[in-house]
Design a protein around this nucleic acid. Structure first.
Lengths: 203, 203
DNA sequence: CCTCCAACTTGACAGTGTCAAGATAAGATC
DNA sequence: GATCTTATCTTGACACTGTCAAGTTGGAGG
């Protein structure tokens, strides 16, 4: 847990990131409501009050973890985008699948950042990473904005759909095979969405 | 807080509902992560361990509160449905607005029931109320299911859209008027959704 | 009147976040 | 090298939390 120089006191940044790492891991293990300052401290190999020095209170640590969450969120979307075709439709689909990747790879973190709990919205990293996530999504939506209509209509349409799908995929009760319900793949939804979207620079 | 017969010990059902009432109120005041067994007990006028007798642990109380949450959820949707026109499109729109009503009238409760925290899925009331909520939504979607396609496609499409819209309306950062972003009304999204939905028994 | 039992209360314990005060190492100054 | 300063923790305390075991109580049935 601690690197070779155990004697040497670590720098500010070291422990901060170690505590965030611990927090992400703790969420993975315990679920979206399993965060604990003291347990993060123990995992990082410091005393119970050490986190309080770097992050004023638990909201401070939560905010830093959420910032990391948004960072991973951005990475998941850009990773899909890098492997996508050039057409607006392919790119939008890639973003959506990145969104869903993130939710299924980091379920607790996903729920955590959208849990509605209060974060410190003055935090620089939190703001920049969360805004970047939304910016990525907005960019992919831009080609579908019909002239004369506000671009927010399309953005919120796509965003709501993929967010709702991700969240519901996660919280729904797992299937009882006796019931004839099955959970559709997102591509099915995207096909329907396609009827409502027309790229304004395609033939 | 206690009715006229303070001397008389209350019945099982009385305290149970009083504790659920307290829980709902507590969520309203403190937000989605502000629930506390002991505080519910105090609000209901009983000792700190009384809730443990009726609800084995905090998951038991949480489940009961979530059940109440789904009940209010159903009421919000049926209230809109009662005032809606007869066409499938009007009825589906009514359901969606009921969904949104619920999220804005009971934000903490809405976040709570979809927070991803574990509930007791064996609980009778929790299951019946949550399943009824989904049944109401499914019914409104039924007229739009194209023959030959699984009905889940439409259901999840609508459900995801309205759920995502509700949640994002709630967790998004409030507008900086300097930014030219505005939050569209759901009717705008519903218009786009309409392009993807064709009632199979309308002209 | 007595008994019994459901519905609590009381008390304890380990865990939590937060704060104040103390310790300590690394670097700066003399 | 000795002293001072400061950032970075540690220690200890407090009020709060959920959970459990044991005790109490009041009403119903005999």
């Amino acid at each position: 847990m601690v690197d070779e120089q155990t004697t040497r006191r670590r720098t500010d940044r070291d422990l901060k990131t170690a505590l965030i790492d611990a927090g992400v891991e703790l969420l993975r293990i315990r679920g979206a409501d399993g965060l604990s300052l003291r347990e993060c401290a123990t995992m990082a190999g410091v005393s119970h009050a050490a986190p309080g020095y770097h992050f004023k209170n638990i909201m401070g640590l939560s905010t830093a973890i959420a910032a990391r969450g948004f960072q991973l969120f951005c990475e998941a979307m850009t990773r899909r985008l890098d492997g996508a075709g050039p057409s607006p439709r392919d790119r939008l689909s890639a973003i959506c699948h990145g969104y869903i990747d993130y939710a299924s790879d980091h379920p607790a973190l996903f729920l955590f950042i959208f849990s509605g709990q209060k974060f410190n919205e003055d935090d620089e990293f939190f703001c920049s990473h969360s805004e970047r996530a939304y910016a990525i999504l907005r960019e992919a939506c831009a080609p579908f904005v019909a002239s004369g209509t506000p671009k927010e209509d399309i953005e919120v349409l796509v965003w709501s759909l993929v967010h709702g799908y991700s969240q519901l995929s996660m919280t729904r009760k797992k299937e009882n095979p006796k019931l004839d319900r099955s959970w559709p793949d997102f591509d099915q939804l995207f096909k329907h969405l396609g009827k409502a979207l027309t790229p304004n620079d395609e033939t």
